[in-house]
């Protein structure tokens, strides 16, 4: 079983130090990413999901502690040339705003060539264009037109597909997708996920999808990690997460999503707002909003409880005091 994980995140912490305060964007996250599968990281804005994924490329700002193991190497220890070669050829990323990820004054074809040459100077232009054309066809674009185009000549959906092709250029084993369809309409979104699923299956590429949309998760994910206030609160197989969500936050998120298929008579929102990451609540980070919180929840941080492939961090599952306090509350009224 051990070998089936391509990435192992162990006790990762990422802090952003600002004037006079520290933002704990990611707190003590341990998560293993199964090879060849699509793992979704779900949460609201500010939950630390983008901070977590940029750490996988050892990229951007923030003080990082812990380890991210990739083929027995700790990504957080890579430096200089080694790190530069590692990025994109082992793990690549599709960003949320393809608009700003592509160079506006460079033709798409040149961007493919530049990216390849950064990693391998000896390859001929012709070989790169050939590879780029194959990839563009794969994402259902016309390579003749697209390679000659500047980004502004392409629609949002086309640019995002260019980014996907570009992310696959160096045959990475892992592709991180950071909200790849937020700015796109549902039809384009649907088509892009069909393409991504095909890539995932045919190239056996491991994918990590960051999103806040449970509809997309239902469509594409194999595994789901739910993040709240910088922590992973639940992890499981996608069907279990939907059929039997364990953490009250996961339940709340699923229940608060309006559906096209029902009259939505029973849906209700989660009370309150996410906490300030500079000043997190004591105990369980979710307890101020939790409908089933007990006194223990404001005192102790819940430990991750592992069951089979799944994990949940909630006192309601197994903490002896939680059950006791529940009984007291019932007796008391």
């Amino acid at each position: 079983m051990e070998d089936s994980y391509i990435l192992k995140i162990a006790n990762l912490n990422v802090d952003y130090v600002t004037r006079g305060s520290v933002v704990h964007a990611v707190s003590d996250v341990s998560l293993s990413i199964p090879a060849g599968k699509l793992t979704a990281i779900v949460g609201e804005s500010g939950c630390g999901k983008s901070t977590l994924t940029t750490a996988l490329l050892h990229y951007g700002m923030g003080q990082r502690r812990g380890a991210i193991l990739y083929q027995d190497k700790d990504i957080l220890k890579l430096k200089g040339e080694e790190l530069r070669k590692f990025r994109w050829s082992e793990i690549s990323m599709v960003f949320q705003a393809s608009q700003s990820a592509l160079n506006p004054v460079m033709r798409v074809g040149e961007q493919f060539i530049e990216t390849y040459r950064e990693h391998d100077r000896k390859v001929s232009k012709k070989a790169i264009v050939e590879k780029a054309s194959q990839l563009l066809e794969y994402v259902r674009l016309d390579p003749k037109r697209v390679l000659q185009s500047y980004p502004h000549e392409l629609s949002g959906g086309m640019k995002q597909r260019v980014m996907i092709a570009l992310s696959l250029l160096l045959d990475p084993k892992v592709v991180i997708l950071d909200e790849p369809t937020t700015a796109l309409d549902v039809i384009t979104q649907d088509a892009i996920f069909d393409i991504l699923l095909k890539i995932n299956r045919e190239f056996n590429t491991t994918m990590i999808l960051v999103t806040h949309d449970f509809g997309i998760v239902a469509k594409v994910a194999d595994y789901v990690a739910v993040m709240y206030a910088g922590q992973v609160v639940e992890y499981n197989d996608v069907r279990r997460v939907f059929k039997r969500p364990q953490h009250p936050y996961t339940k709340g998120l699923i229940e608060s999503t309006p559906s096209l298929l029902s009259n939505n008579e029973e849906i209700s929102e989660i009370d309150g707002t996410p906490p300030d990451l500079r000043n997190k609540p004591q105990g369980c980070v979710f307890h101020p909003r939790c409908p089933i919180a007990r006194p223990i929840c404001s005192r102790e941080i819940p430990a991750a409880r592992i069951e089979g492939d799944g994990m949940v961090a909630c006192h309601a599952y197994g903490h002896p005091l939680y059950a006791q306090e529940s009984n007291i509350e019932k007796v008391g009224g």
């Binding site: 039809i187 979104q189 509809g215 239902a218 469509k219 994910a221 996608v238 069907r239 298929l261």
Partner: peptide, 10 residues
Amino acid sequence: AVPAPDPDLA
């Protein structure tokens, strides 16, 4: 195209 929030349906 609207994804249904149910893995089997979607």
